[in-house]
Design a protein around this nucleic acid. Sequence first.
DNA 1: AACCAGGACGTGA
DNA 2: TCACGTCATGGT
Length: 253
Amino acid sequence: MVVKKIYDRLLKEYGYQGWWPLIGYDGVNVTKTGSINGYHPGEYDFPRNDDEKFEIICGALLTQNTSWVNVEKALINLKEAGLLGMREIAGGDIEKIKECIKPAGYYNQKGERLKILAEYFWGLGGRVPSRNELLMLKGVGPETADSILLYAYGVSSFVVDSYTRRIVEGLKLIEKGRSYGEIKRFFEAGLGKVGSGERGVGSGEVVDGGGGEKSIDFKIYQEFHALLARHAKRFYLGNKNGEGDFLREIVSV
DNA sequence: AACCAGGACGTGA
DNA sequence: TCACGTCATGGT
């Protein structure tokens, strides 16, 4: 119940966030970025092609412990070098790739891992991967796997990131130090059983949720995660540790 | 000028 | 399992 109330409150406060951010491209130049020109709020039919799908996958890897503005620079470099695609990364020069993604940091390991992803997803041929399959890839941990499932494939698998953790710990909804999976299940159970959705399916790890409740689709999951990120940037970024967070009033009932 | 950013991996208890 | 060091650039 608390979970749903938090979602409703955040949506009312911030509106649709339009994640996952995608770069705009007119065929020659990058025309827009998520951080500058906004995302695609209220639209959930993304990604619309393989290039957009792979861009999300790359972003999910590149943003590991890295701010999104730096990731955008890397993505733009790749795009303008004609390298932002499965075939291009898989067959591209590793040194050139590393040079492009330098702004996103950890460019040596991220470069190698981008190649692994490109080869893997190219070999998939459009099939939807399972969560465990993704976790076997070097460089793909729980958050990256869930981000790929949720935003690249429209699979209802809740994404937990450092923002999410800070909020639930700050609100004392979950004691500090709990595992990724526990926080993930907290939200998924709170939202109810995963069911309908035009794309993808449930993560396979979600159980019941109360029975007979209306099914939740991937759009809520996408929106919720984006809202939590937006909210955390406002109240939990840096050293400010949730001071003034209006969610406290909702929780303490 | 430290500190942090939309983590994950390898290692050693 | 779990804590800890490592990977790296850019913004505040």
